[in-house]
Nucleic acid binder design. Structure first.
Lengths: 341, 341
DNA sequence: CTGAAAGCGCTTACAG
DNA sequence: CTGAAAGCGCTTACAG
């Protein structure tokens, strides 16, 4: 309600003076500073952000962009984890966080989102930008907006989880357990860069033992639990000898687990199942799911930290965060090995 | 980049004309409209939101406020559900969503949040406002900002889940099953209004059978799984005859379940456990948890819809959303009845 | 150390 | 139907 002008009048100085005192410009009599601050508190003055934004070009708002694909967004607990990390960092820096969830269809990006980028409302943007072929950050980058990318699109500074290493970890673990007959449950690689990298990691670890990833049967789903269930069914019916299922998405692993149990298989005795993401449910389900944790909160926090570096004109190195294998109860040596032992 | 002025020049009209054409003011020659629109697309003009906000007083940003208590915020899946509902509605109306998660300690509200409210950056606010004694919306209300409250604080228009009815549903179900020796796991009522109402509902249903809720043993935790575990331990050690545990928070129910299983009890055969919230894990855990679903996405969506009504100066009635009992596998008739049968 | 003044890019009565 | 002009509330060179 109160404006700079009222504060100035009350303090008996000019509005320029008030503005400068408030923005901590040096060289001010302790006296005028006092007068100003008194008026400020007396009036409960709070700068109008829109005005400040217009004249300074800074809004103190950063855009956090999670694309809306397959409705996965709001059902994915990792999103909340990343948000938490981002929020913590923004909070510390006194920045506000504008959440944008543009729809993306056939490579077409939401016009509303594009307008937001063009609107000058954002000082910077952090995006989960991993859809092959359509970069959410391209426009922002083009317009010189500082941005950091959590993912693989080659736009500006980026941070991502080491999906390749995660894939390797997962495959090595299963291989060490003695599995050779393994089925893959994934989603089409066109949907998410991360998938290709997880597969690549899987392949590298397999290759060390002379196995070809391409020889393993694979079914693709759509992130949903149900699709995991169906993929498991297809895989197991066509390949009854499978001793393990590698699911590149936890939710799909949950569906696979469901299918296995419905068809009377003991997990992990008859069939091992591993996932990727370490969502909360994975911890609680029986058997608890062995999976890969990609440290989503850190991912978010670091992304925000990098953006704030960008604000100070230092260009941070892109970073890759190592994942962690979380060993729980859903995988064990295959039956054949067990009976031998 | 392009400004109104450039568009005006390009179109050969005044900036006022451009502005009015863009804001769909009626009465314009089809011809000038054409000229203007051509210039707009040619220049890729996008209004500067800060400028528009400053002169119109509207920012098209609505604040979504989830207080940060006990770290529960980002670990609570319901938050994501509500956000989804709010986002869907905002998206449709072309509004942006600013996420604010003020810290609240001893009734003290985050100064940064308060400043945000005072900053003029928000056209309206939706808050999860259910901490007894400290209203997150009081200041907004005072300043005439349209706001809707998801919860119980008596600030302005509100929408909430019918916690009382939910409590009744839960108690009736257990009573119908034949339970009489029940233990309560809750959190201190000072933490959340909803808890008192759930308890009230529990009490009403109990009273119908002549039972006094106050006679049932109760332990309070802090939302966490671990506290649920500990509450169950305390309750069961002190009252070995308990046949059922009513947990007012799903996560705590999960902890209670864990304790029961660790101590060799069969759920629901030896002990029934019910929760409240219907978080995703409740669906997957074994035994699947019988619980109350409070329709969080609708809560969010309706809250946003109400805010948009407020924007058009219609004052919507406050609303109460009925909950739903989700019957799964964690509750059954008590053993005594079973053996009788 | 302090102030007058221009300017940020729009919207909105008010004239014409 | 269209335009000139004031004004939204700040920041920032530029003088003094």
């Amino acid at each position: 309600m109160a404006t700079l002008q009222q504060v100035a009048r009350q303090a008996g100085v000019s509005i320029a003076t008030v503005s400068k005192v408030l923005s901590n410009t040096p060289y001010f009599t302790e006296e005028t500073r006092q007068k100003v601050m008194q008026a400020v508190t007396a009036l409960g003055y709070q700068p109008n952000l829109a005005a400040r934004a217009l004249s300074s070009g800074k809004t103190h708002i950063i855009g956090v962009v999670f694309p809306y694909i397959y409705d996965a967004l709001f059902t994915d607990p990792l999103v909340l984890d990343m948000l938490q990390g981002i929020e913590a960092e923004c909070y510390q820096h006194g920045y506000n966080l504008l959440l944008s969830t543009p729809r993306v269809q056939n490579g077409q990006i939401d016009e509303g989102y594009l307008n937001l980028i063009r609107s000058g409302y954002l000082d910077g943007v952090i995006a989960l930008d991993s859809i092959p072929g359509t970069s959410l950050l391209a426009l922002a980058q083009e317009r010189g907006l500082p941005c950091v990318n959590i993912g693989y699109n080659p736009t500006g500074v980026s941070i991502r989880s080491d999906d390749e290493q995660g894939g390797r970890l997962l495959m090595q673990y299963l291989l060490d357990l003695g599995h050779r007959q393994m089925g893959l449950i994934a989603v089409p690689e066109a949907l998410h860069f991360a998938i290709s990298h997880r597969l690549k990691g899987l392949g590298e670890a397999a290759a060390e033992l002379g196995l070809q990833l391409a020889d393993l049967p694979r079914q693709d789903g759509d992130f949903s639990l149900k699709s995991g269930h169906d993929c498991a069914a297809a895989l197991l019916e066509a390949n009854p000898k499978l001793t393990a299922l590698i699911c590149l998405i936890d939710r799909m692993a949950l569906g696979a687990l469901q299918y296995a149990q419905q068809t009377g298989r003991q997990v992990p005795e008859d069939l091992s199942i591993v996932g990727y993401d370490d969502i909360p449910t994975s911890h609680f389900i029986t058997p608890a799911l062995t999976t890969i944790n990609q440290k989503a909160p850190q991912l978010g926090q670091m992304a925000a930290a990098m953006l704030f570096q960008l604000f100070t004109d230092v260009i941070p190195d892109s970073a890759v965060l190592a994942t962690e294998l979380v060993i729980r109860q859903s995988a064990a040596p295959p039956n054949s090995l067990r009976s031998v032992a």
